[in-house]
Design a binder for these strands. Structure first.
Lengths: 229, 229
DNA sequence: CGATCGTTTGATTACGTTCAATCGTTGTGG
DNA sequence: CCACAACGATTGAACGTAATCAAACGATCG
């Protein structure tokens, strides 16, 4: 691992909580592995014996249904850890994970971590905090799905990619539009059309480049009920 | 608290993990309070300084939107605890809770618990387990919302109320149909119609009484894609 | 240059929402 | 005790949104 790798890694809440010695002993001489787009990291039902840190790229977490469809539950990117909770309990992964862009990902075995916790209870609190963050995100996603129309969900998604709270902004879509569509619970065709309809609110799209003229207006639109414009 | 109260309470995973001494010291001489239908337990944004154990009745957990609509995120019933994670981190409740049937609920202050954890790290692991269970449930709900039609979600809900895996079953709906509808992400009218359409699969409804002729068939229906019957 | 993949566009359909009216039950007050 | 509100649930009709099926487009890659 390069110094850069370490810097970014130690910024992740979980590693920050662990402190550098424990982190170092946990990771040892392991380095992030390169993944190609489309590679599986783990499969729904596999024994959950490790969690992951993303150094670069994007990962999708999804459920596989009997009928073959995939339902994207969440996406993660550089600087984030995922599957900590599942690993931690030593059960089985409740979903599958796959790389959606070229990526570098560090796999961290869970065995050591479980021991570390018994020695340093504060660590458990931090893991709980991480789990709670995911929990809140899922609750918000449920609210989104139940209460917002397709264009509103897209607006929310776009707003999640910007830091400013008003004024204009320009971003690059992080991954395939079809994947965004799935994440937001709609078909790619619906995504395309709904995104086009956001033009009325000052959103212009060229390839994966999205320009928003007025963040505040978009925020307003995402929050309000469908019935009023 | 009666002996019955204690029996049921100590069956909850969280209390089971704590052991009887810690549980006793945490609860002291507190007793479950009676709540009327419609009473608020806490409000989205309140400081999360306690969690709750349901001795009797049903509780809904919901988000309140700017436009006044309520989005039900989850429901809980006798023998279950809720809001542990939020309380535990000492932040604020991310949703509101309200009693939907006459109920008896025990409020447990969080301050003591946080201290107990630092003394008994295993407890943190158990709390993490509880959080993970909720996490899985939310993931499943997201899958439901994204992948299943209204009748399928109702079928899933009904199946969640029965213990058997095949054969016939008869249950009472636990609370208002309008609330079930909201929980499943649809309008009461849609619920009514969708439930009626389940008649073809051997589901007959009279008031809040639901009789299912063939659990296995219903399970099959809930899992398969909408396109095929 | 042709093949492939991701995206867009078009036409049609189906599902669920919305608005509205009705029905049945429960509970209340005259 | 009955009449009548009040509420939950159902039913009907019209509408709207998104899904589906199908085709075309554009960029990328071999």
């Amino acid at each position: 691992m390069t110094t850069d790798d370490w810097t970014i890694l130690s910024r992740a809440p979980l590693f920050q909580a662990m402190g550098s010695e424990i982190t170092a002993s946990l990771i040892g001489s392991r380095v992030p592995r390169h993944y190609e787009r489309g590679e599986r990291i783990f499969q729904q039902g596999d024994p959950a014996d490790a969690f992951f840190f993303i150094r670069e790229g994007w990962v999708k977490l999804f459920r596989e249904r009997e009928d073959g469809r995939e339902i994207v539950v969440s996406t993660f990117t550089a600087g984030e850890t995922f599957a900590e909770a599942a690993m931690f309990l030593g059960g089985r992964y409740p979903a599958s994970a796959e790389v959606v862009t070229p990526a570098r990902i560090l796999r961290v075995e869970g065995a050591g971590l479980r021991q570390a916790i018994l020695k340093q209870p504060q660590l458990a609190l931090d893991m709980l905090a991480a789990a709670f963050v995911h929990l809140k995100q899922l609750v918000e996603q449920i609210e989104q799905l139940k209460a917002q129309s397709a264009p509103q969900r897209i607006a929310d998604f776009l707003l999640g990619q910007v830091s400013a709270e008003s004024g204009p902004a320009e971003i690059a879509l992080p991954y395939d539009k079809a994947l965004i569509a799935n994440r937001l619970g709609m078909q790619p065709e619906s995504f395309s059309r709904a995104l086009a309809r956001l033009r009325e609110l000052g959103v212009t799209v060229a390839r994966d480049n999205v320009r928003m003229k007025d963040i505040a207006r978009l925020t307003e639109f995402a929050a309000r009920a469908t019935r009023d414009d």
